[in-house]
Amino acid sequence: MTKEEVMQAFEQTQNSFKQKEQEIASWKNQVNLLEQKMDGIVNAFQAMYDGLDLPADLDEETENQLQNRKDGIRLSVKSASRLERKWKDIQWPEDFAENFVTPEELVNEIKANKEQHSDKPKNSEQAETSTEQKQDEINTEPAAEVEKEETSEQKNQAGLAETERKSDIELVQEKAEINEKVLDGLTDFTNSLQKQFYSFFEKAVVPVIDGLYSGKKFSAEWISQLQEQNNEENERVIEWLDVYDRFIQEMTEFLETFNFHLYEPEEGALFDEETMEPIGVVENHEMEDEQVAEIVRFGLLSKQRDKEEPLLIRPAQVIVVKNREEQQEDTGEEQPNESGQ
């Protein structure tokens, strides 16, 4: 590598380090916010559940059914209360800055290196003065220090000067490599933190909504039955069953605080293998093959900074239409291409 390339590589590590520091600071804010909001959602869920009295004077069957709904909600509240336990504490890299070589430290190293190799104390003093004068010029400082050596050496000291000059460039390169290793370590850390973050929302937070969503779907069937029998008691039951929406709304807002969004494809949409996971097929001659017949579970999206397209964290689970006759006409085969066939 040329001297310029070496200096450029060192300076690049300084820029990257600043970005990483900002990124880690941003993560710290994010994690602090998560810890606060987790506490908030747990309390909100518990308060909503505590205030969830069954309507009075219901017939026994309706009361049992509603109690069963309440038992299901209790489990969702219980799952939410475990979120804090499922979030692993972060071991923040505290000493990374100590290992990172700043331009000032590099100048000092070059100076020390020069003093060590030089038998001319006067030159060292000049170099020191020169460094002090330039201490505010952060990125150009080491380059200037190396440059100064190149131009100030005398011809009759060429052999020694060559050794010193080479040593200084090597020193800068060595420090750039140290910095790159620190940056690699920080990148590994932020990548792992991001993975933990996504995984926490996918595997711990969203399953709470999944449970509520299942309850809501179950209730929706019941509601349609109740609506057919138009009476006052049923109205109170239907009103009570709105509770699912309130819990789901609370959790959805929690997700949105962290730029996560539920992904719910429309029924009738064409199956998309990039964003959906089929967990069942049904025959439905009212619909085309590979249309989505039912959404079984929401997907999860994360809106990313500086990117238009959100990142899919979890596909939506769907039931897809597959009409048997067409299937046979298409393939003429009977066995899937799976192992052991």
């Binding site: 293998e273 897809v320 393939t331 291409n337």
Partner: peptide, 18 residues
């Protein structure tokens, strides 16, 4: 991943564990 998604709905045109 996208091929795996099709394993369920279109097993006859999908190859796994080959």
């Amino acid at each position: 991943h996208s091929a795996k998604s099709r394993l369920y709905i279109d097993p006859l045109n999908t190859i796994s564990s080959s």
